[in-house]
């Protein structure tokens, strides 16, 4: 049996450890008054980025809403690993209806609360990238354009993981999935396809849009807290690595997520009413290869022979993000 030494603190990054932060700004994993909205004992895989993102997002939302929260869940990993009766991991009122209707169900809850004069309750809808950018996209756009009082959280792991790793509209170029296999002339997902839903959300002119990553849970908590304080349609797109689908080490989830941010491939920004108002600067830019080489879904790019053209194209995407969002200023 091979063994690996794992350090339980972050090294080789500029991330300030919790111990160095003052008490009020620390990210605390467990304490007596934490609501554990998504409780332990659920069936997520080891190193699941989505479980981590949901846990931090929802506990932050509970704090910000004074525990007055209702959550809707689209079909997907989060729904499946959290809910099988009688072992629901949800400590909050939680509803699952279908794959493609979470935003509309949430709109309905918000409408019912309005009819009943319950303006103290916050409604959250959540789904993976398949539910958000593909099958539920019509309902999402409808919820946005009506400016319904819903915070939508997309946990983006860049493919349909629950059904066994098939390509979604959020799958990055060249990534291997089971429906974009690493065979033939241009192995993996074609470049030039896919959609950027944070930007589409922004184009609806809704009050708040943000991207976040499990690489910076404190930033995720801050953005969720801010979103809870805003009324109307709000959207947060959270980047959540999937060790199973990405072919990364479950112990490297945070590292992979951080490299996506530090390479510029996943820019962190906030927007209000259709305008980007700020972005999180990259302190030390890393080449995209550092991010890609940790994931077997990009293995075919590293050859032999190395696909220098593909790697250059991905680097160009990162550089473009850095320029567009001013990540190195």
């Amino acid at each position: 049996m091979t063994t690996e030494r794992i350090k339980f603190y972050q090294t080789g990054t500029f991330t300030a450890g919790n111990r160095l932060l003052d008490e009020a700004t620390r990210t605390v994993q467990s304490r007596l008054d934490r609501t554990n909205s998504l409780n332990s004992g659920h069936r997520a895989c080891q190193g699941c980025g989505e479980a981590l993102g949901a846990r931090y997002a929802l506990d932050a939302a509970m704090r910000a809403s004074h525990n007055q929260l209702i959550a809707v869940n689209a079909t997907g990993c989060l729904e499946v690993f959290s809910s099988p009766y009688p072992e629901s991991a949800w400590q909050i009122p939680w509803m699952h209806s279908l794959f493609g209707n979470a935003p509309a169900v949430a709109s309905g809850i918000a409408a019912a609360l309005r009819a009943k004069r319950r303006d103290d309750v916050t409604v959250i809808a959540q789904g993976g990238d398949g539910a958000t950018v593909d099958i539920g996209f019509g309902c999402l756009s409808g919820m946005f354009e009506r400016n319904d009082d819903v915070l939508y959280l997309c946990y983006d792991n860049e493919a349909y993981m629950n059904t066994g790793i098939q390509r979604s509209g959020a799958t990055p170029p060249f990534a291997r999935t089971n429906t974009t296999q690493a065979v033939g002339e241009h192995p993996g997902n074609p470049i030039g396809n896919g959609k950027n839903v944070p930007r589409i959300a922004l184009a609806h002119g809704i009050p708040y849009v943000a991207t976040a990553s499990v690489a910076d849970l404190h930033d995720l908590e801050r953005k969720v807290t801010k979103a809870i304080g805003v009324r109307g349609a709000r959207y947060i797109h959270v980047h959540v690595p999937c060790p199973l689908g990405w072919g990364s080490d479950p112990a490297h989830t945070m590292k992979v997520a951080r490299l996506a941010v530090e390479s510029g491939l996943f820019p962190l920004f906030e927007a209000e009413f259709g305008k980007v108002i700020c972005s999180t600067p990259i302190r030390r830019k890393v080449p995209v290869e550092r991010y890609l080489e940790l994931q077997t879904r990009f293995k075919h790019l590293f050859g032999p022979p190395q696909d220098t053209e593909a790697l250059a194209a991905i680097q160009a995407m990162a550089d473009d993000n850095i320029a567009v969002y001013g990540l190195m200023e």
Partner: peptide
Amino acid sequence: QFLNVESEFAALSVLIGASASG
């Protein structure tokens, strides 16, 4: 509350949420 939605699928889905909220 009268919601003009983007499809029949959304219309009934809105009611699912609303009905489950009492």
